[in-house]
Design a binder for these strands. Structure first.
Length: 777
DNA sequence: CAGTGAGCGAGCTTCCGCTTGACTT
């Protein structure tokens, strides 16, 4: 008999809480949601007032059986899922699925995992809030209806297996629209003027003209005037300023900072954080809250006073700024703030240290600055130079932590100014006017997309990383780096009474790990925006959230809200299915100069392609009419931007390179990119080195030989009589038998394996640490 | 798994939000 059974969502949490509660309490975890809508027939009975059908998720069946058993034995059951909409629903699903209505069941909540908070929670149990549960059901059903009615429209009108949803489609829209802004962006040029001056004691500093000039003649006039001008300090102002630390980390700010400082992908950040959490080193990592427990505040204060001194400590409470925050947890912070470092992998150490610094800095004093602004008049010209200086009077939190910023753009014009007073006469060393291009808006990184999604209130801490991986998996978006290009800008310099102009090369347009929309992403987005503007509206989720809040307050019925949404939505689905054209992104490029046939680009069954000639029907083919020719677009090319010339070149593939060892050598492009085929074997071309359009026979032979050598090294041994090979693979040596692969235990030398060993491993496959084979389809 | 771009059309795909492992040739 168990006295008390406490069910929480996370197993790591269960472990900690059990320690706090003592031996009368058994604490177990339900691993999040245990049931979900059935996938058959939507899982929603539209005609029966949107009645949902819930089933226990397949991977939770065993767990639910186990929980049922435990709850039968227990006297009192405490449902301690998180205090937010999803948590309330989890509690209710447990109540329902475990059949707890005849048991003593209590609902408790806490926002921080401290002994104090848990004990308080136990003293204040309540009922399950059915209004909040209804709000969750409404959210779930809305998402199901949108996703499962919208996606099939795409299958019919664009391509099978595509997907659309309240969150992912808006995420794709952000990226698609940003790309269009960039495509339509016209860079403009203007001259930025910087002067280097000497103060009365000959110390140099720089000042700029606050406004850039477009006109070269104006610049030349100015520089000409400066040749003979006197420069006088006409004004000087100083004012105090302060900088305050940022709030402790939430999921989204942690993802952003880890991306900016370490280049982590959002998934990487989450998996490292998960490890730290499971090891008890940080608090829960999927949170939208910036709150710290009072215990954490006290420890932070003590740590700061000890490490930096009393004047560096300042206890603060931060308020959330993000839309729709539910704040069921604390901010992400070290469990023990007095530990500045932890053991672990490099990544774990780095991320922990970042979390520690951010948390501690959030409880430190502001930095005190003094900002100085100096105006320098030109005696024979109406323009005025401006110098800006910043002096740090007290470093405060900056002693520990400095947040990074997104844009690598714009050099900083602030410098440390020497002693300058009003009326000082200054000498000029040089004045440089350099042409500057305006920049297009920055493409999104994974992390800056998360930031934007959070601003719009779409997605949740637990879904940011999975959503970003979904839109990439569907092929809507691709994360890429692209090389920059060079261009020339003019630089006009006045030094020692002489004006000299020259051209300077600069790099621009290089992108590192940015999100680009693909052709299919752009086509799907255009289609959805055209036909389902309401769902694709950036405010759709925010508005829905307001309705959900009303339901949670008990002031509205969820079925009514669903009805109001669904009726027009479903009608739109039907008319779109009936009336909308198939969307293929088709574009006519021109007529082939050799044959006169039309050349078009469009999305085909296998992605973006170029087609020469008109499509024909089966009958026409029988009659001997000529079929059109097809070729896939290369990586980096897109339907919207490919030129006629580039498109024509694609028909040059496959290219015949000649013969080697009496066999033909051919260069072409396949599913995995550019390759060379020789004697029935394929060799990939080297990215960034080889060009499939120009590669020659000599190089091809080099690659073929290289591959042959690798294949030889791949081979360890074979037992031909049993069709067994021992080979070197990506994850080390393995056994290959009749097209199936088998693992080799770590402590076994692959080259010492005997035939008997191999047969044994094939009969009883070694599974590593795994206990059982998980079926997954 | 390195061709293909369509033919009949069965049967499949798909959502968001909670949680962790399992597992890749």
């Amino acid at each position: 008999m168990i006295e008390n059974l406490v069910i929480v969502e996370s197993p790591a949490k269960a472990k900690t809480i059990e320690k706090f509660l003592g031996k009368d309490y058994k604490v177990v975890s339900c691993f999040g949601h245990i049931r979900d809508l059935a996938t058959k027939n939507l899982g929603v009975d539209i005609d029966n007032n949107f009645e949902p059908t819930y089933i226990v998720s397949p991977d939770k069946k065993k767990l639910v059986t186990e929980l049922k058993k435990l709850s039968k034995e227990a006297k009192t059951i405490w449902l301690a899922a998180d205090e937010d909409r999803e948590g309330e629903a989890i509690a209710w699903h447990l109540y329902d699925a475990l059949n707890l209505k005849n048991k003593e069941t209590k609902r408790i909540v806490f926002h921080e995992i401290t002994k104090d908070a848990i004990q308080k929670a136990i003293l204040n149990p309540r009922e399950i809030d059915l209004n909040l549960v209804d709000a969750q059901q409404a959210r779930r059903i809305l998402d199901r209806l949108v996703g499962f009615e919208l996606s099939p429209v795409l299958w019919k009108k664009i391509k099978p297996s595509l997907s659309a949803g309240r969150v992912q489609s808006v995420a794709v829209r952000l990226i698609a629209e940003r790309e269009k802004e960039i495509m339509n962006f016209q860079a403009s040029l203007s001259y930025k003027t910087t002067g280097t001056f000497l103060n009365t004691t000959d110390t140099a500093f720089t000042a700029i003209l606050p406004k850039n000039k477009k006109d070269k003649k104006e610049i030349l006039d100015l520089l000409e005037a400066c040749k003979t001008a006197d420069f006088t300090v006409s004004n000087k102002t100083t004012k105090p300023a302060k900088k305050s630390p940022s709030a402790p980390f939430t999921t989204s700010t942690l993802q952003q900072e880890a991306s900016r400082k370490f280049g982590f992908s959002v998934a990487q950040t989450m998996s490292v954080a998960q490890k730290l959490y499971e090891a008890g080193k940080i608090t829960y990592m999927r949170t939208d809250s910036v709150n710290l427990s009072s215990l954490a505040l006290n420890t932070a204060k003590a740590v700061i006073e000890k490490e930096f001194g009393k004047e560096y400590a300042k206890t603060r409470n931060f308020a959330t700024k993000s839309k729709g925050a539910q704040e069921a947890h604390e901010a992400i912070r070290p469990t023990y703030i007095d530990k500045a470092t932890v053991a672990g992998t490099d990544q774990e150490k780095k991320l922990y240290s970042l979390i520690w610094k951010r948390t501690v800095a959030s409880q430190m004093s502001e930095a005190q600055l003094e900002k100085t602004n100096v105006q320098i008049a030109i005696s024979n010209h109406s323009d005025t130079f401006t110098a800006q200086g910043e002096v740090l009077l007290f470093d405060g939190f900056l002693k520990l932590y400095r947040e990074s910023v997104d844009e690598e753009n714009e050099e900083n014009d602030t410098n440390r100014l020497p002693k300058i007073e009003i009326g000082d006469k200054l000498d000029v060393q040089e004045i440089i006017s350099q042409q500057k291009f305006t920049h297009h808006p920055a493409r999104y990184t994974e992390a800056s997309l998360v930031k934007k999604m959070e601003e719009l209130g779409i997605g949740r801490p637990s879904t940011y990383a999975p959503t970003i991986s979904t839109i990439q998996k569907r092929g809507y978006v691709i994360k890429e780096s692209r090389e920059g290009q060079q261009r020339e800008v003019e630089l006009i310099r006045l030094v020692e009474q002489e004006i000299v102009a020259k051209l300077k090369k600069e790099n621009y347009g290089a992108e590192k790990n940015k999100l680009f929309p693909t052709d299919i992403g752009l086509i799907v987005n255009d289609f959805l925006v055209e036909h389902f503007d309401k769902i694709l509206d950036y405010n759709f989720t925010a508005t829905a959230e307001k309705n959900l809040d009303t339901i949670a307050e008990g002031k509205a019925q969820w079925q009514e809200m669903m009805h109001d949404f669904y009726t027009p939505f479903h009608k739109k689905i039907e008319t779109t299915l009936e009336t909308a054209e198939r969307a293929s992104g088709e574009r006519f490029l021109g007529d082939d100069p050799k044959t006169g046939k039309p050349v078009i680009v469009r999305i085909g069954r296998f992605g973006p392609m170029v087609q020469m000639g008109v499509s024909i029907s089966k009958e026409e083919e029988k009659e001997g009419k000529e079929k059109p020719k097809f070729a896939s677009l290369l990586k980096g090319q897109s339907l919207g931007t490919i030129t006629f010339e580039e498109a024509l070149k694609l028909f040059d593939l496959p290219r015949d390179l000649g013969e080697y060892e009496n066999k033909k050598v051919v260069a072409a492009i396949g599913r995995f990119g550019p390759y060379i085929r020789h004697d029935g074997k394929f060799v990939s071309l080297k990215k960034d080195i080889d060009d499939v359009m120009t590669v020659e026979l000599d190089r091809a032979i080099e690659l073929i030989e290289e591959k042959k050598k690798l294949d030889r090294e791949r081979f360890i041994k074979a037992f031909e009589e049993e069709d067994i090979q021992v080979l070197n693979g990506r994850w080390g040596p393995y056994i290959k038998h009749k097209k199936k692969n088998f693992k080799i235990p770590k402590d076994v030398e692959a080259k010492d394996l005997t035939l008997e060993d191999c047969l044994e491993l094939i009969k009883n496959p070694y599974k590593g640490k795994a206990k059982k084979k998980a079926k997954k389809k």
